[in-house]
Design a protein around this nucleic acid. Structure first.
Length: 858
RNA sequence: GCGGGCGUGAUGGAACUGGUAGACAUACCGGACUUAAAAUCCGGAGGCUCUAACGGGCCGUGCGGGUUCGAGUCCCGCCGCCCGCACCA
C-alpha cells in the first residue's frame, strides 16, 4: 500500500488552491463576513516554530469559518521597518531596503509551504512607500486634528550612537550597543496625544469581553488611573515665583501625618535653586545620571538634599515641613512634588529615618489597644499600609470619625479640603503621551518641513509619499537621514524659502497601529476605503503573542479612535479587535557542554543523539539536558520549520503544534512527538485505503461507526469554537481509533473517512484534500461545507450509571436512557452489590441524578 | 511590594454549571508478523495491597481543615511555581 506522500501532495494542492483563487476575499454584502488576523511578522529572515503555531491557529479559524459559510478575510503582511535592518546595514554594508525585501521573499516562500489559507493578493510591507505614504497622510490629518504635537521631554540619549534610546535599550546606565554612559537630555519630540484618551481607553476595556482578562488588566494597570487630591502648600524662603508648590496625593486621609515635602530633581524649583547653589546643582546632576530605567531606579538608594525651604500645611500651621530634593520623586507623574507621610508609606519611612525626620501616626489597626504609642511610631515598626477598604482607627483624622475605612476617610478629606479651598479632588493617569519620533533611518519619514520663516510646516498631500532615499550610507553613527547629502534639503511648502525636512522617522509601533485597517483595502488611494472598512471591520478574531498585550494593542485602540475622528474608519471600529487570543510559545530542551574555561556551550537539536539514557554529541561527548524553554538562537534550541516540512510535510508540523497543549499554553517540541504526528497522518491515510478496499463487512457494525462519526463532529466543532484545538485533535484520534476498530461495510467507512477529511481540513488541509479526492468527494474539501451534525446520534438508547455507596463508587448499572427515577431506584435496590452493602436494611437516603449517577447512603 | 494565573500518573494534558478522576497522546512494557530490525497490528498500565484465579480492599488531583449524599471543581488557612507591573505619591 502506498504511503501518503506529503512532498508531492502539498505543493500540488497549494497550486490548485492558488489556481482556484479560493482565498482571495471579495466584499459581498449578501454574506456574513469574518475577519481573522494573526499579528504580522517582522521579516527577520526565517520563519520559526512560533510563527507556525500562530498562523496555524489563525488558519484553523479561517478554514473552519469558511466551511461554516462565512466570507473570510485572512490577510498577511510584513512589519518591515525597524532596527535590525539598520544594524545589518551597519555591519554588512547592505541597503536596509534590499536586506528587508530579501528577507520577505525568503519568509513568504516558507510561509507558502505551510499551506495557509491566506489572501496573498492583499499582501504589503510597511516599508512599501505605498503603505507609509498613506501613513504620512494619516499623520497630517492627526496633526491637523491635534492628535499629534511637539513638546520638549527628557529622554535617554546615547552620545556615541547619537540617538534616543528606549528604556529597554539602557543596560546598567549604558547604551546597549555603544556601551557609553547614557545621558538624560531634553529634546523636542513628536508625541501622540494618547493621554487625553486615558479615561476612554480604560473604561472601554470593560466591553472587551472576548479579550483575555489578563490583557485587560495589564492595560488597565498601564493606564493607571488614580483618584486623589491636588493641593498647594505655601512656601517660606523660596525664590520669587515659587510662593507655593503644587502637590498630589492619593491618600489625603494622611494629611496630618505629613512631616516633610520632596520635589523631583527636574522640578522647576530645583532647577531654579541649582542656578545659584552648587550643592543643589551637583545633587540634581547626580540624580540625572541615573538612567530612567526601572531597574536602575530600584537599585538606587533613596537620597535627598534639604533645600532649607519649608512649606506650610494649612491644617498644621505650626509645623512647617522641610522641602527636600529627592531622587525618588518623578517629574513625569503628578506635579513632581509630594509630601511624605512616613508612618504609612515604607519609602517615606526609610527616608525619614535616614534624615531624622519625625514620624506621626495617623491611624492604627481597628483593634489596637488604646493608650501609649498611639501618636508616634517606634524605631522598629514598619510603615502601616492597610488596604483602603479595611476599617482602621484614626488618631489624626482630617475629617470624619475615629473609626472608618481608608476610602471613607479619603472621601471625607477631599470634601473638607475642597470646602476650605485648600485643594480639589483630581484624577491622575500613569499613561503618558506616546513619543513617536525616532532618530533612525529605517522608518516612515515624518512628513513635515522646518522652515526658518514659517516654522513647522506640514508637507503638501500631493507630495506624499515622502520617500526614504535609496542610497543611505551608514559609515557614521546617528541618523543616516541627517547625514544624507541632499535628502533633507527642500523648500517650504508654504512660502518657498529654503527649508529642511524633519529627519525623525516614526516609531515602528505606528506602522502596526493601523495595518489591520489597511488590509481591508490595501491598494486604496486613501488610507482606507469607506465601503471596505465598513464591511470588513472589525477584526473578528485577532491572534498573537502576549508580549504585545500593552503597547501594540493600546496604540491600535488609540489609532482606531483617532482614525474615526479624522474620517478614516466607521464609528463602530473604535475597538478594532472584537476578540483577542494570546497563544503560548513553542519550547524545546536545551543542550550544553562546558568549554575549557567552564563556560556553557550550546548545541542545536540536530547535533545531538538523544535517547532514554541521555544525550550526547556525535563524537560521544555527554551533553547536559536543560529545561524546555522558548526556542532562541542564543540557546540554539531551535527547530527550523522548513526542515520539518522537508522531512514530514507541513501537515505534520501543523498537526503537532495543535496537539497536546492548550493553545494559550506553551507547547514543547520533541522529535518523537513530530514523528508520532507523522505516523498518525500515515495511519489516517491507510485507513482511507482500507475503507476503499473493504467489502460488505458486518452491517450491524455500521451504527457504532455512524455514532462515533457524529460524536466527532460534535466534539471537534465545540473544541474549535472554544479555542481548544488540543481537544479537537484528541477527538480526531478517537474517531481514528473507531474507524480502525470498525468492521462496518466499506461504504460506511468511506463515509466516515470523508467526514474525517472535512474535520481535519482546518488542521491538515493537504492530507484532507488528498483523502477527499481519493474518497470521491466533490471539488475541494477546503471549499466543502462543514459536516452537519445529527444530534439524535449522540444519544444512546441505554446508559450506564455508576452506583456510589456512601459516596464511593462500588458498582454500575445499565438502564434505558429514558428510564424514570422510580425505575432506576428499583433497579439499583435489586443490584447484588447494593444488597450486599445494605445487608437487609433500607437505605437511609437514595440520590438519583438522571443520566449521571446514583448514590446510596446506608 | 502590588496584580494575575497555576499545582492532576513517568510526561503533555482531559474531566460540561459539584456527579464514574486520569479522555486523547507521548514515553514504557508484553504479544503477533519478520532470519532480524524498522514499519504495522493486538494488548497492558495511577500507587499500595489481599487472592491460585475470578475478583476484592485501602490510598490517590501541592499540604491542612471545612461545606455536601457526593469535592480536582466551592469555602478558610498554608506551601510551591510561573507571568505581568512597580520609587506612581
Amino acid at each position: 500500500m502506498d504511503r501518503y506522500n506529503a512532498r508531492e501532495a502539498e505543493p500540488k494542492w497549494q497550486a490548485a488552491w492558488e489556481e482556484a483563487a479560493l482565498f482571495a476575499a471579495q466584499r459581498d454584502p449578501a454574506r456574513p463576513k469574518y475577519y481573522v488576523l494573526e499579528m504580522f511578522p517582522y521579516p527577520s529572515g526565517r520563519i520559526h516554530m512560533g510563527h507556525v503555531r500562530n498562523y496555524t491557529m489563525g488558519d484553523m479559524i479561517a478554514r473552519y469559518k469558511r466551511a461554516r459559510g462565512f466570507n473570510v478575510l485572512h490577510p498577511m503582511g510584513w512589519d518591515a521597518f525597524g532596527l535590525p535592518a539598520e544594524n545589518a546595514a551597519i555591519e554588512r554594508g547592505v541597503n536596509p531596503a534590499d536586506w528587508t525585501y530579501a528577507n520577505i521573499a525568503e519568509m513568504r516562500a516558507q510561509l507558502r509551504l505551510m499551506g495557509f489559507s491566506l489572501d496573498w493578493s492583499r499582501e504589503f510591507a510597511t516599508c512599501d512607500p505605498a503603505y507609509y505614504g498613506q501613513q504620512q497622510a494619516l499623520f497630517l490629518d492627526f496633526l491637523e486634528a491635534g492628535f499629534v504635537y511637539r513638546k520638549a521631554s527628557v529622554v535617554n540619549w546615547d552620545p556615541v550612537d547619537m540617538t534616543v534610546l528606549a528604556n529597554e535599550q539602557v543596560i546598567d546606565g549604558k547604551g546597549w550597543r555603544s556601551g557609553a554612559p547614557v545621558e538624560r537630555r531634553e529634546l523636542t519630540q513628536w508625541f501622540y496625544r494618547i493621554s487625553d484618551m486615558a479615561e476612554t481607553l480604560l473604561s472601554a476595556l470593560d466591553g472587551l469581553e472576548a479579550w483575555p482578562e489578563k490583557v485587560r488588566l495589564m492595560q488597565a494597570n498601564w493606564i493607571g488611573k488614580s483618584r486623589g487630591l491636588q493641593f498647594s502648600f505655601p512656601t517660606r524662603n523660596a525664590p520669587a515665583g515659587f510662593e507655593e508648590i503644587l502637590m498630589y496625593t492619593t491618600r489625603p486621609d494622611t494629611f496630618l501625618g505629613a512631616t516633610f515635602a520632596a520635589i523631583s530633581a527636574d522640578h522647576p524649583l530645583a532647577r531654579a535653586l541649582a542656578k545659584d547653589r552648587a550643592d543643589v546643582a551637583a545633587f540634581c546632576a547626580a540624580c540625572r545620571r541615573v538612567a530612567t530605567s526601572e531597574e536602575a531606579l530600584e537599585k538606587a538608594e533613596k537620597v535627598g538634599l534639604d533645600t532649607g525651604i519649608t512649606v506650610v500645611n494649612p491644617f498644621l500651621p505650626n509645623q512647617p515641613l522641610p522641602v527636600y530634593i529627592a531622587n525618588f520623586v518623578l517629574m513625569e507623574y503628578g506635579s513632581g512634588a509630594i509630601y511624605g507621610c512616613p508612618a504609612h508609606d515604607q519609602r517615606d519611612l526609610d527616608f525619614a529615618r535616614k534624615y531624622g525626620l519625625p514620624v506621626h501616626r495617623v491611624f492604627l489597626p481597628a483593634d489596637a489597644p488604646e493608650g501609649a504609642g498611639e501618636e508616634y511610631l517606634s524605631q522598629e515598626e514598619a510603615a502601616f499600609v492597610p488596604p483602603k477598604t479595611e476599617p482602621v482607627r484614626y488618631v489624626r483624622p482630617l475629617a470624619g470619625d475615629a473609626h472608618m475605612t481608608g476610602q471613607t476617610a479619603i472621601d471625607a478629606a477631599i470634601a473638607r479640603a475642597e470646602a476650605e479651598g485648600v485643594g480639589q479632588g483630581a484624577t491622575q493617569f500613569r499613561l503618558r503621551d506616546w513619543g513617536a519620533g525616532r532618530q533612525r533611518f529605517w522608518g516612515a519619514p515624518i512628513p513635515v518641513v522646518h522652515c526658518p520663516v514659517c516654522g513647522i510646516v506640514p508637507e503638501k498631500r500631493e507630495n506624499l509619499p515622502i520617500r526614504l532615499p535609496e542610497d543611505p550610507s551608514f559609515d557614521r553613527p546617528g541618523n543616516a537621514l541627517d547625514w544624507h547629502p541632499s535628502w533633507k534639503y527642500t523648500t517650504c511648502p508654504d512660502c518657498g524659502a529654503d527649508a529642511v525636512r524633519e529627519t525623525d522617522t516614526m516609531d515602528t509601533f505606528v506602522d502596526s497601529s493601523w495595518y489591520f485597517a489597511r488590509f481591508t483595502a490595501p491598494r486604496a488611494e486613501t488610507p482606507t476605503q469607506a465601503e471596505d472598512a465598513a464591511y470588513w471591520m472589525n477584526v473578528d478574531q485577532y491572534i498573537g503573542g502576549i508580549e504585545h498585550a500593552i503597547l501594540h494593542l493600546l496604540y491600535s485602540r488609540f489609532f482606531a479612535r483617532a482614525m474615526i475622528a479624522t474620517g478614516h474608519l466607521p464609528k463602530t471600529a473604535a475597538e478594532p479587535f472584537d476578540a483577542l487570543f494570546t497563544q503560548g510559545m513553542v519550547t524545546h530542551e536545551t543542550y550544553s557542554t562546558k568549554d575549557a574555561r567552564g563556560r556553557d556551550v550550546w548545541h542545536g537539536p540536530d547535533s545531538i543523539i538523544r535517547n532514554e539514557a541521555g544525550a550526547r554529541l556525535e563524537d560521544g561527548t555527554p551533553v547536559t539536558i536543560g529545561p524546555s524553554i522558548k526556542m532562541s538562537k542564543s540557546k540554539r534550541n531551535v527547530v527550523d520549520p522548513t526542515d520539518i516540512v522537508d522531512q514530514f510535510g507541513a501537515d505534520t508540523a501543523r498537526w503537532f503544534v495543535m496537539s497536546d497543549s492548550p493553545p494559550d499554553r506553551d507547547v514543547e517540541w520533541t522529535a518523537s512527538g513530530a514523528e508520532a504526528a507523522w505516523k498518525h497522518l500515515q495511519r489516517v491515510w491507510r485507513l482511507a485505503q482500507e475503507a476503499l478496499a473493504a467489502g460488505p463487512g458486518v452491517p450491524e457494525d455500521a451504527a457504532p461507526l455512524h455514532r462515533a462519526t457524529h460524536r466527532a463532529i460534535a466534539d471537534v466543532t465545540e473544541a474549535i469554537e472554544g479555542f481548544a484545538f488540543n481537544k479537537a485533535v484528541a477527538a480526531l484520534y478517537t474517531l481514528t481509533n473507531a474507524v480502525a476498530k470498525s468492521r462496518a461495510p466499506g461504504s460506511v467507512r468511506v463515509a466516515a473517512m470523508k467526514v474525517m477529511a472535512q474535520l481535519m481540513q482546518p488542521m491538515t488541509p493537504h492530507l484532507a484534500e488528498e483523502l477527499w479526492s481519493v474518497l470521491g468527494g466533490a471539488g475541494f474539501v477546503t471549499d466543502a461545507d462543514w459536516p452537519v451534525l445529527d444530534e439524535s446520534l449522540l444519544v444512546d438508547s441505554s446508559v450506564t450509571l455508576p452506583i456510589q455507596i456512601n459516596g464511593k463508587r462500588r458498582a454500575d448499572i445499565t438502564v434505558p436512557a429514558d428510564a424514570g427515577k422510580d425505575a432506576v431506584e428499583q433497579a439499583v435496590l435489586a443490584d447484588a452489590t447494593v444488597q450486599k452493602w445494605l445487608d437487609g436494611a433500607a437505605p437511609r437516603k437514595l440520590i438519583v441524578v438522571p443520566g449521571r449517577i446514583v448514590n446510596v447512603v446506608v
